[in-house]
Design a protein around this nucleic acid. Structure first.
Length: 486
RNA sequence: GGGGCUAUGGUCUAGUGGUGAGGACACCACCCUUUCAAGGUGGUAUCACGGGUUCGAGUCCCGUUAGCCCCA
């Protein structure tokens, strides 16, 4: 029983929520750090939450982030099946065992009736939990209710007094008084198992050694603990990891922008950046390192470095991280990854050309999705000119002259002299002859070539644009300024 | 309504009774520079509050407050 086995158990909702992604990441890191197995289990017993392709989408998101799993619905394993919807017989079998052993009992109260009583209890200020009225029905009473065809759920007969101590690897010992727990439902009247029940049955049958999951399940753990006892199954270790909150400390939701792995991917985040950021939320690398790969984290991961408090998601930090990774990647690789974003904006470009463009721009953007706009002037000359820049550098007397003089010296360069060094020497010589600072030539030229005041070095832009296009744009702007003098 | 968890600068965190409370993002300034980034240097800003325990508390205990979670 000392084999480390950790599972991640998402619902197949399609989107992999950022909080769940981090839970998966911690599970994966822990398994890998201890030479254990990482298991994927699909919790699909709630038809409301299931989406077509949801399972595949979740798997793709995990794989995109860089996680792999040893057992799962797609690849099988020794404890198949790995979808809860295919394990119903196991839950029912366990239910019958508890019923036969007297640790569980049928409850004939209808959901509507229970809701009514809950509301009533709420009004009177009493605890809204189940009042256990079916707990002590006699054998005859149960028999007759069954014969009347009343549907029933299965409830656990939990202790009325005493306490359960949950030992948590992140939070230490947490005590729960039994008086505050009620006889929770194991199997609903329609035959579907509840989360707590299916989870315990599966975790045991799949030999899960460490239950690592979100903090929202900490309050469920004493119930599960009681179930393990009723079933006479050994307890696994538990580790409840903190939640991720929105900047206003509320629950992270749609209105806070991107909340799923897929959305981050579509915004042009790199998987290594997102994974790195997620690992950093609530966990710290020994020695305070902030930038590391998943493999590096797996080598030194430990649960005791997980912070017990919830953390607020910070878009600026992950943007910084993404920018960092973007700068580290070879231009060809950034180009390859950026292609879908270029295509989406309608830019047709081959990878070699794209690599050259990216090399000049990749350390000026934070997201892949910014590249189409950042590179747009290489694909079109009908751009709008930055208004403030226009007023400052072009809308003044002499600007057209400067562009023309620049154009002349550049035109004097042969095709093979139109290089970074060649164009720069030509421009600096010209500035010298005119008795002005090179900047006075450079700024208007940048505006004429790109419409912007910011961007890569001017001579890099010239070379990327090419001699012909550079000259054409300079002439066009000189002419335009002559027609409408400032 | 009850129970649980949590609380270090704006944010993520290091810190496990004795530190000038360290780092990162963000922010500000300066340097570099044809612009913008990147990079470099420096700076602003923190132990939620109140009680204890202790020679000494961010660190241990109790309470308050707030946020979150669960029962739903």
């Amino acid at each position: 029983m000392d084999a480390i086995r950790v599972r991640f158990a998402p619902s197949p909702t399609g989107e992999l929520h950022i909080g769940n992604a981090r839970t998966a990441l911690f599970c994966w890191l822990f398994a890998r750090s201890r030479q254990g197995r990482f298991i994927l289990r699909i919790e699909d017993t709630d038809p409301e939450r299931n989406r077509e392709d949801g399972e595949t989408a979740v798997q793709e998101a995990l794989a995109w982030l860089g996680m792999d799993w040893d057992e799962g619905p797609d690849r099988g394993g020794p404890f198949e099946p790995y979808r809860q919807s295919e394990r119903l017989a196991l839950y029912h079998e366990h239910g019958r065992r508890l019923l036969a052993g007297g640790q569980a009992y049928p409850c004939f109260c209808s959901p509507r009736e229970l809701a009514r009583r809950r509301a009533q209890a709420g009004e009177k200020g009493r605890a809204p939990g189940y009042d256990r009225r079916c707990r002590d029905l006699t054998v005859e009473e149960r028999q007759s209710l069954r014969e009347r065809g009343l549907p029933h759920a299965l409830r656990l007969k939990s202790p009325l007094s005493g306490q359960t101590v949950v030992s948590d690897l992140v939070r230490g010992e947490v005590r729960f008084l039994h008086g505050e727990l009620d006889d929770f439902i194991l199997v609903r009247s329609d035959g579907r198992p509840t989360y707590n029940f299916a989870c315990v049955v599966d975790d045991h049958l799949m030999r899960i050694s460490h239950v690592i999951r979100g903090e929202e399940h900490l309050s469920n753990t004493p119930r599960q603990s009681l179930l393990y006892q009723a079933l006479e199954y050994p307890l696994p270790e538990f580790a409840h990891i903190p939640m991720i909150l929105a900047p206003d400390r509320s629950k992270l939701s749609k209105r806070h922008g991107a909340t799923s792995v897929q959305q981050y991917r579509d915004q042009g985040y790199l998987p290594e950046a997102l994974a790195n950021y997620l690992a950093l939320l609530g966990w710290s690398y020994p020695g305070g390192r902030e930038v590391f790969s998943l493999e590096e984290a797996a080598r030194c991961f430990s649960l005791d470095r997980i912070s017990p408090s919830a953390s607020v998601y910070d878009d600026r930090k992950i943007e910084w991280l993404n920018g960092h990774y973007l700068r580290e990647l070879p231009p060809g690789e950034v180009a390859r990854r950026a292609m879908p974003f270029m295509r989406a904006e309608g830019y047709v470009v081959d990878e070699n050309r794209m690599r050259d463009l990216v090399a000049a721009t990749q350390d000026r953007v934070k997201l892949l999705a910014e590249l189409p706009d950042a590179l747009s002037y290489y694909f079109r000359d009908d751009f709008d000119c930055d208004e403030a820049g226009f007023q400052k550098h072009l809308a003044r007397p002499g600007a057209a002259d400067l562009l023309e003089r620049g154009c002349e010296v550049l035109a004097g360069l042969a095709e093979n002299e139109f290089t970074l060094e060649g164009t720069e020497r030509a421009y600096r010589d010209l500035a010298g002859r005119l008795g002005i600072r090179a900047a006075e030539l450079i700024h208007p030229t940048r505006l004429a070539l790109t419409g912007r005041t910011v961007g890569p070095g001017l001579f890099t832009i010239m070379v990327l644009l090419g001699r012909q296009e550079t000259l054409a744009r300079l002439r066009k702007w000189a002419e335009r300024l002559r027609v409408t003098p400032a």
